Amino acid sequence: MNSRRNFLQKLVASAIAFPLIPADAYTLNEKKEDPAWDGPPLRVAIMGLGSYGTRVAEAMRDCKRARLTGVISGTPAKITNWQSKYNIPAANCYNYENFDRIKDNHDIDAVYVITPNALHHDQVIRVAKAGKHVICEKPMAVNAKEGQEMVDACKKANVKLLVGYRMHFEPKTLEIIRMRKEGELGKIGFFQGLSGFTIGDPTQWRLNKALSGGGAMMDIGIYSINGARYMVGEEPVWVTAQETKTNPEKFKPGVDETIQFQLGFPSGAVASCLSTYSMNNLDRFFLDGEKGWAELWPATGYGPIKGRTNKGELTQPHMTHQTVQMDEMAAIIQEGKQPVVPVDGDEAVRDLKIIDAIYEAVRTGKKVELK
């Protein structure tokens, strides 16, 4: 986390440009492609070389349709390390001041933005203006207004904007969605989503409103928001919410510690959810219908996900989420494949509108209607 803070400090202070040196001394990983896919891989640069960026890079070693070909970071030492570890050509390495130059780099098709939430807006728009497709971590922005601006910028630039909703490709999750769609659970009446953990280092960017846009809701809470939507299969029409703060020293104004929130859907179904940074063992989805029920616990962790329904245990095999996500996103970008649950910018804006409404409900103590 210290390295992330150092990077942020350098970003604010405008770090010295990382020099670009000829790439003729470097070669990309030679990788055997999936026999079922005879096209070129999606060539991806990762922006933000922190812990999750590293997780994605490691997962991409097993991708069949996507390949890591570039990096963008504010820390030269990280770039040097990744060059060696992943055989990244020096010509494909950029910092936060010069990454607009990717416009002229034909070895990069897309950029995966994995930086603090508040930086996504400007970085995504810059990538779009450079003519590259964008994958952005969630939440896509700190509010719906910024999110819509990102969607509009990508549409204007004629590039795709996808968001890192890895659970949309998770087999047990998709099985429950299938059961609900085919009527096996009957009319849905209730969803419960619990998302939380006890956060550590109080100086990290996730507890800095200027960088995170909030607190637990802008990190772990979005899983229950998004999960409620794809599990119930409807868009909510109202929100109520209540905030609890037990440690105001750690959780400053504007940084939520715990929020309980409720969603109402057009069919009459309701959702009761909790987002927190102060309790462990909270990663559970429960869906109840007239004919049956389904549960995931853990529901959104890196896996393996465990699930059961009124018909018994779910046995779909575990696959590394980020590997599946990147291969599926390559298919979306290259072939226009349509996922069961959308992962585009419009999907992310829907979540952001709900987050905006939750914060308004906390502030006013009133039910907030959603349009």
Results as ranks from 00 to 15, higher is better:
G186A: 11
A157K: 08
P40L: 11
D62Q: 13
I222F: 08
A17P: 08
E170Y: 00
E243P: 02
D122S: 10
A13C: 05
G233Q: 13
V151E: 07
H121C: 05
E170W: 01
V113T: 06
K32C: 00
P266D: 11
G48L: 02
C63G: 03
K209L: 03
G336F: 09
Y112Q: 04
R61D: 08
S275C: 14
P89N: 10
V232Y: 05
T198C: 09
V343H: 04
P202T: 13
A157T: 08
M150N: 07
A228T: 14
M150I: 15
V255S: 07
M150E: 12
Y165S: 00
Q262H: 15
M279C: 07
M1D: 08
G193Y: 08
V163I: 13
K129P: 01
N92I: 02
N6L: 14
D109W: 04
N310T: 15
D351T: 15
L282H: 12
D109V: 03
G53E: 01
I177L: 05
A216P: 02
K209C: 00
R67S: 13
N29L: 11
Y230V: 13
K155N: 11
H106D: 14
M150V: 14
V270L: 13
L287R: 12
T173Y: 01
F286W: 06
T54F: 03
A228Q: 10
Q9A: 13
E360W: 06
N105S: 01
A57L: 05
I305W: 05
P248S: 10
R65M: 09
L49H: 04
V341A: 08
C63I: 06
D344T: 13
G303Q: 06
L68T: 04
I355E: 13
T69I: 06
V237K: 12
N143E: 07
E328D: 04
E347S: 13
P339A: 11
G164H: 07
V113Q: 01
A15C: 05
F169A: 07
K252N: 05
Y223P: 01
G312N: 05
T300S: 09
V343A: 08
K181W: 01
R5M: 10
P89S: 11
V362L: 06
V324Y: 00
P171G: 04
F99H: 02
E290R: 09
K337L: 12
N208W: 02
S195F: 03
R284I: 11
V12Y: 10
W297H: 12
M231S: 04
F190G: 04
M140P: 05
K31R: 14
G292P: 09
A13N: 15
G189Q: 14
M231T: 07
M60A: 02
A216H: 05
K156S: 10
N29Q: 12
N95L: 00
A57K: 03
V44P: 00
L28E: 13
W37A: 03
L161K: 07
L174Y: 03
N87L: 12
I355G: 04
N98R: 04
A271Y: 11
M326G: 00
K245Y: 00
D104S: 09
L174Q: 12
F261H: 09
Y112L: 14
S3Q: 15
T244Q: 11
D107L: 03
A210M: 03
G131W: 07
I108D: 01
D107V: 03
E369L: 11
I354M: 04
S267D: 12
N87I: 03
L263P: 03
N29P: 04
A25G: 14
G221Y: 09
P22K: 15
V239I: 15
A130M: 05
N87A: 14
